[in-house]
Write a protein that binds this DNA or RNA. Structure first.
Lengths: 342, 342
DNA sequence: GGCCTGAGCTAAATCGAATTAGCCTGAGTA
DNA sequence: TACTCAGGCTAATTCGATTTAGCTCAGGCC
């Protein structure tokens, strides 16, 4: 199958020098004096034979493998969070690294094992990521190794942490409505995500609602109501449905994400309410869905790609990066917001 | 930072044996006779010291790294195709392998380089994947190495190839309509994807339409029309819009994918047509979108996860696997299909 | 002539495992 | 007694690079 690989020793022989010399020439080290003639011979031999260094051997000797790992619970599987992987892969590539990807589906044992495995493979660093911002307990191994936590709230760990700036997302959502004049009849759909599974709400929900309330207070007003539900289309639909059924005609909806907004659209359109003339809608995610809806949905960008990138950058250029790095979340304005009628 | 790793030699010393003996015990080889007592001592020493083998060193010696690579153009970034990665990662894990993931955004040079890099890292095999089924030219290196092509139509390459069974998808779509009695007014939306960029259509479109026509012919009927457009919501909307504007009231739509179906929903609902009472809709993708739409969309499953899995399985268990492996595409029935009224 | 210096290069060690080729001991056998 | 043999183990090599330590030779200087 695979024809025998050419080794450095063969290149050296072909060039008529020692493998030491060949190594110095090919790794471009200038602190050793090699004659131009020898350099040329080595390079020519290398090209002629099609030499490629065995990175496994190099890694063994240098203890640097030019390799990072990304361990997550359910990133790849979850729609656009795959962008995290793409960001991480891209940034790794710019640093001449390859990326190992592992997923655990939340299984803690598997997780510990995976992290261990990656370090057994001598990765130079490891990103430990979870799908959404939430408290979690990374394997202890990470304490003593180069690692970055992504969306993972873990107080005891003195590592760089990358988080989306959810409070800003809330502020941007509210601000988009405030600037066009909305003050009354503004409802949050999904809100803190206070559900059976999360009676106190989820971190992203809490932070965003803080941001919303802060900006509305600045404008001398407040939410007309906050409907709690999971952040899926059917529940968004049901929440808005109940609002409409109780006789409320909301002037604006701040939806927890694009999926909730999709449900909201369905309910509003079912009752013949026009977006944005009758009801403005803003949301968070800036997923493709936002562009697919009619009218296109104004939505705060959830910077998965950027978070993946930043995480790997913090591995590649460590510096003094411990602590929380918040990645900005900006409103992407489309066609679902208008000034309140009347 | 990282405390010094324990080596096999240290375990051996702690156990009072040679590293050869330790190696035999820990790798569980039985062809060498080691006394039960020595075995116990080695194991205890290993546990006590927390020994973990250096897989880089092992890989150098054995030339087997327990590592696969996945190179693609734009998998991770593209919504649910990320499932390919998850399937590949999962299957790799069941074979005790880790997966390198690389993306090239379609840049051929980068691609060649990436493939080369992966083999420099001594991967045991490589999946070369593209987003949708299409003709493509893998790097030559793949000819002489363990590799699998995923959705990649490349005649000259004598490798295992994994493809979705698009013809079956077409058959399943049509069949879902035929069995409830549709014969007239059935339109394909998106169809072959004959657009400026692809005047002859795209492979998936051609195969699916063949399947559709085959089944309809079996039932003594044919499509009332096939509207060509790219497979995005806005174009699906426009296509159905034009149909409606020309006075046609379609009884059933066979949509190229869930996004097109979403556009179709929008157009139908805009005109007050009820799904499925007035118009049935079927589609392909079985993405989350299908469950989010109201009514939930009957859609043929696009088995990304399974394709990722199978690709890696073909690397892990080579056998005589060259040639095309078609992964089944099955209808997932939901609420968007009903018998034609009247 | 002897000594020093630096340019140019190489031998050998090293990384941490797996593996090959034996070595030693005591029991069994002729 | 001498010789085999098997059980139990180890020394040394190997994988393919990097890196340390040091060698050789020519030229310059006193």
């Amino acid at each position: 199958m695979a024809q025998r690989r050419v080794t450095l020793a063969q290149v050296a022989e072909e060039a008529g020098v020692s493998s030491t010399t060949a190594s110095f020439v090919l790794s471009g080290r200038t602190d050793m004096r090699i004659s131009p003639d020898a350099q040329r011979r080595v390079r020519e031999a290398s090209d002629r034979l099609g030499y490629r260094p065995n990175l496994t051997a190099r890694g063994l000797r240098t203890k640097v493998t030019h390799t990072f790992g990304l361990v997550s619970d359910i990133i790849a599987s979850s729609g656009y969070a795959g962008e995290i992987i793409r960001g991480a892969v891209d940034e790794a590539a710019t640093h001449q690294h390859m990326l190992f990807v592992g997923e655990t589906q939340g299984d803690a044992d598997l997780e510990r094992q995976l992290v261990q495995e990656l370090f057994d493979r001598q990765v130079d660093g490891l990103v430990y990521a979870v799908l959404g911002p939430r408290p979690c307990v990374p394997p202890e191994t990470l304490r003593h190794r180069p690692a970055v936590l992504l969306q993972c709230i873990a107080d005891g760990f003195d590592l760089p942490k990358v988080m989306p700036d959810d409070a800003q997302a809330g502020r941007e959502s509210a601000r988009a409505l405030m600037v066009v004049g909305h003050r009354e009849g503004v409802y949050a759909i999904g809100a803190h995500h206070r559900t059976e599974a999360h009676p106190a709400g989820i971190p992203a929900g809490l932070a965003r609602m803080n941001g919303v309330e802060e900006v509305m207070a600045e404008h001398g007003t407040r939410l007309a109501g906050a409907l709690q539900c999971t952040w899926e289309p059917a529940e968004g639909f049901a929440a808005v449905r109940s609002l409409l059924d109780s006789g409320v005609r909301p002037r604006a909806l701040i939806c927890a994400n694009d999926r909730v907004a999709m449900g909201a659209y369905q309910a509003l359109q079912e009752d013949g309410l026009r977006i944005p003339e009758d009801t403005s809608v803003v949301s968070v995610d800036n997923s493709d869905l936002a562009t697919w809806l009619r009218p296109a949905l104004s939505s705060v960008d959830l910077p998965y790609y950027e978070m993946g990138r930043l995480s790997v950058r913090l591995l590649a250029e460590p510096g003094d990066a411990n602590g929380v790095h918040r990645v900005p979340m900006r409103m992407v304005a489309r066609d679902s917001v208008a000034a309140p009628a009347g």
